[in-house]
Structure formats: C-alpha cells, structure tokens
Design a binder for these strands. Structure first.
Lengths: 109, 109
DNA sequence: CACAATACCTAAATCACTTAGGTATCGCAA
DNA sequence: TTGCGATACCTAAGTGATTTAGGTATTGTG
C-alpha cells in the first residue's frame, strides 16, 4: 500500500540532498539513500525513477548521459540553481516538521 | 496538491498519540495536533475525519457519542488495546525514520 | 553458463491527502 | 437581532506519490 515504506514526500528532499554532493546517476542515488540511512529507507526503483523525472520536470535537476567509473552508461543528474534553493527550503521544512512531530510524540503517555 | 502540508502517513500516529492521553473527540484531536506542534501542523478536517474512520475500521479506535464540557454533542474516540500496540509500533517507526532522514540531511553539503 | 549486480524504464493500482463544499448549534458583538 | 466566528460533524472529487510488478540490456563472477 502507498506509503508503507517511505513517509510520502521525503524522497524528494533526499534526492536533492544526495545531489548536493555533486552529479550522481539514479541508481547511485538509490544506493546513497539506502547507505546513509543504514537500510532504514529502501527506495524502490519504481518510486525513484519517476521522482527523478518529476524533479527534472520542475527544473530542479539537469541530466546528462555519461559513463560510470566502471564504464557503464548512466544518466547523471545535478542540481540546478533552483534545485539548490529548493533543497534548502525542503531541508528547513523537514527540520521544522520533524522537530514538531517528535516533540508531540516524545511527551510521556 | 497531495502532501503539501503533512508528510503523508504521520497523521495516524499523531491521532493515536493524542488519544493516549484519554478519550477525545475529533475536533479536539485536531486542536491538540495544532497546539502541540505549535501550528506547524494544521490538519484539515477533510483529512482528519476520514482518518478517524479509517483507524476505527482497523480496530485501533473505539467511538462513543458524548457531551463536551460546554454541553455540545461530540463523538469521543479512545484507543483499543490493538490501537495502543499500534501506537507503540508507529512511534518506534517514526523515531527510526526521523533519525535516519535527519542524519542524511544533517551532514554538511 | 547461469545468476547477481548494475542501470535504466513504465503501467496499473492503491490510498492518504487537499480542496471545497455541506449541516447544525452556540455565544457574542454590532 | 442578526450575523458571524467558533464548535462539531460530515462527504465527494481530484491529485499525485508511492507500491507492485513487470520489462530491457550489460557486466562481472562463481
């Protein structure tokens, strides 16, 4: 069912954050998310690729075909200036939100 | 657009948490969420009432009509034993998730 | 030579949420 | 006295991100 794995909406900010380190291809972004969250978030490819296309369509990402270290073809994404602004705003939104929810849940029952 | 206000999926755990303090009616749950999150989360009634029905249908809540302090009719919800277990599990899920996402976003760009 | 991993993709289904209404009662201020 | 905001409930239509479940092709490895 929708949202059983991810809290819907958090994928975008994670993609943007991944790309803040430099251009990266889709498959590697998925790996980055899984690794930096220590397997807490396992992003399905069926969510990842449409998300990349969506963020690209919004002008937050630019893409370009290239070669990986191992010589395979891959589509590299990088943040546009608008995407970088969006990253900052979404990180702020996450922080505010997470703090608020955590505070509500933290209080003893 | 869907999810512009809430991160989809977080409403359920907030409702469950609100009811961990004792029976409460829907309108008051909405107020509790807004207040304890200091207006960060403004839950729309169009999301709140369907969510209450959903959680009730899942057997996590019981409901009963009653009177408010001011003498108005209201439908009071309370946690079932299953709902209480669900609360614990969803709080744990939120904490794990929030910690993982925050760590991924915290690292300097 | 088969199989896992890499690397990309899409279509259908699900379902929580937003938007936008609706009903009715109550208290209060103009 | 009337009109408006707050309380308290509700629903239907639309949106759109995600899950599920496939698909292609290449590369490296046991």
């Amino acid at each position: 069912m929708a949202g059983s794995d991810l809290y819907v909406g958090t994928l975008d900010v994670l993609i943007l954050k991944a790309l803040s380190w430099g251009p990266m291809h889709g498959y590697a972004i998925g790996r980055w998310i899984r690794q930096t969250t220590e397997d807490v978030l396992a992003v399905q490819e069926g969510a990842l690729y449409p998300a990349l296309h969506r963020l690209h369509a919004r002008g937050w990402l630019a893409d370009e075909w290239g070669l990986t270290d191992t010589g395979r073809e891959a589509k590299y994404y990088r943040l546009t200036p608008v995407g970088r602004r969006q990253l900052r705003s979404e990180v702020a939104r996450w922080r505010t939100y997470a703090r608020a929810v955590s505070a509500a849940l933290e209080s003893p029952a």
